[in-house]
């Protein structure tokens, strides 16, 4: 694992599998009487949220707390950030507070990258969603959910439908699922596919119907109705008719296929209420898996050998290593 998690591209296949395997072990924690591990006791994790996202923040907060880390929530709303404080000054403040990890959500693509590589902070940086760029922990929890239902993702077919252009979830999933060996198809109207998508490790299609018959998982992306004002599509009704997962299309899915959505859903737009609530919808489960996956990420990032912070008096090993 690298020191930061900024993009799904930071995860080699072994790294991704390590995160998912670790998360699988950590998921059992939810069934224990004491849902807490001492692993990150004394470490400080800052949730630095420049955009409102209660769901993601709570998920990271629960993950950090279950690992016994101290959590500081720093919301840009109502803070000095809204008074014009720069990302740099905010970062320097966090560094002075001794943050071991910064979980950052930002409306500007690349802001986590900037935080990690500018020399402002030494902490690990976890991208919790940046602009229209990436959201790697969402992709990890999606992959985790798929693995639980479908087994090894090698050669599994995943169809991702909707506003790929503006979706950080789609970017992170396309990269991660390809790394894990899945065959990803992005389905969207041509206006909502990014320029250069042909260089991505995915297939693309403008037609949802032909992409459903053989897929193992279908992921519906949130489509904002405002996009039609920018002429990305003519109307919500037409979008829904051509790219929505309705009952008719749902019936075309193979028996074992699962339905996913990163939330929040526009019921009736990209997904019908019946499909969202069906037995094959794993949308609620995605949320609960998120905590385990984020615990795994925080554990793996923070327990690495960080020599700059090593306390020499704590150099005794629990289980002495054997060198042969």
């Amino acid at each position: 694992m690298k020191h930061h998690l900024l993009s799904s591209a930071d995860l080699a296949r072994d790294d991704a599998v390590l995160v998912l395997d670790t998360a699988a072990e950590l998921l059992s924690l939810a069934d224990r009487p004491i849902k807490k591990l001492p692993t990150l006791r004394g470490r400080t994790i800052v949730n630095l949220f420049f955009e409102d996202s209660t769901r993601t923040r709570i998920s990271f907060e629960a993950a950090a707390k279950r690992l016994s880390a101290d959590v500081i929530n720093f919301s840009a709303k109502g803070s000095s950030v809204s008074k014009g404080e720069s990302l740099k000054d905010t970062a320097l403040t966090l560094e002075a507070m001794g943050a071991d990890a910064v979980v950052i959500r930002h409306g500007s693509s690349g802001a986590p990258h900037r935080l990690a590589n500018s020399g402002w902070v030494r902490s690990s940086v976890v991208n919790a969603g940046d602009g229209t760029h990436e959201h790697p922990t969402q992709a990890l929890l999606d992959a985790f959910t798929m693995r639980k239902h479908l087994g090894d993702l090698d050669a599994k077919r995943v169809t991702i439908v909707g506003d790929v252009l503006h979706s950080r979830v789609a970017r992170s999933n396309a990269l991660l699922l390809s790394t894990l060996g899945a065959e990803v198809t992005l389905v969207a109207p041509p206006t909502l596919l990014p320029v250069g998508v042909e260089t991505w490790p995915v297939q693309t299609s403008y037609d949802l119907d032909t992409s459903l018959d053989k897929c193992d998982a279908v992921m519906m992306l949130r489509v904002q109705a405002e996009r039609m004002d920018a002429a990305f599509f003519p109307s919500a009704r037409e979008y829904s008719r051509r790219y929505g997962l309705d009952d008719r299309r749902f019936k075309r899915l193979p028996e074992h296929a699962i339905v996913m959505h990163p939330g929040p859903m526009n019921r009736g737009m990209e997904i019908s209420a019946d499909v969202a609530d069906s037995a094959r919808s794993v949308i609620v489960e995605q949320v609960s898996n998120g905590v385990a996956v984020r615990m795994a990420v925080l554990y793996l990032l923070l327990s690495g050998a960080d020599l700059s912070r090593t306390d020499p008096t704590a150099s005794d090993s629990t289980k002495p290593e054997v060198v042969s």
């Binding site: 693509s109 690349g110 940046d130 229209t132 950080r168 970017r171 990014p194 320029v195 250069g196 998508v197």
Partner: peptide, 18 residues
């Protein structure tokens, strides 16, 4: 627009400048 519209802008998630 934030950068040249290209495969790079698509990957970086930035509004392209065609």
């Amino acid at each position: 627009a934030q950068m040249n519209e290209s495969a790079m802008s698509g990957v970086l998630g930035m509004r392209g400048w065609p």
